[in-house]
């Protein structure tokens, strides 16, 4: 996996937008690429809360795929380019087996599943607690 040189999404190409008053209102943006296996998603209005959790579910694919014959995600990392800019960058690089967008989509779906599950467990636990009282 040769991704070591690529994990720095804070490499200065965004310097101009820092001083630009017309920062995009779009929630999510990503560029067209020749290579669909690597992409940086730029999400505005989000921070470590979502970034770290999302990075985790997507990188989990790496750990799972080490065992499988068809590895999918090669690299996933996130950064907050600048503390005074309300923005989150998530970098995903995948193998030829899938695309970065697909990996992102799956990651979101997984995160949702986990969150839904914990939510239900909380409701159940809450009800159980009420009965015990």
């Amino acid at each position: 996996m040769d991704t070591s040189g690529d994990n720095d999404s804070n490499s200065g190409e965004d310097q101009t937008s820092l001083f630009n008053e017309n920062i995009s209102d779009d929630l999510l943006e990503f560029a067209t690429v020749k290579d669909p296996t690597s992409l940086t998603f730029s999400i505005s209005g989000e921070d470590h809360t979502l970034g770290n959790a999302l990075r985790y579910v997507i990188t989990l694919k790496i750990r799972l795929s080490i065992r499988s014959r068809s590895p999918e995600v090669e690299y996933c990392g996130y950064s907050i380019p600048h503390p005074s800019e309300d923005k989150l960058n998530i970098r995903i690089q995948t193998t030829e087996n899938t695309t970065a967008i697909e990996a992102m989509r799956k990651g979101l779906e997984d995160l949702k599943t986990i969150c839904d599950h914990i939510k239900e467990t909380f409701i159940r636990s809450n009800r159980l607690f009420d009965i015990q009282q």
Partner: peptide, 14 residues
Amino acid sequence: KKLLEKISSIQMGM
């Protein structure tokens, strides 16, 4: 709820 909302809004954006 808030976390799920965050996820959905990104899914929408996607």
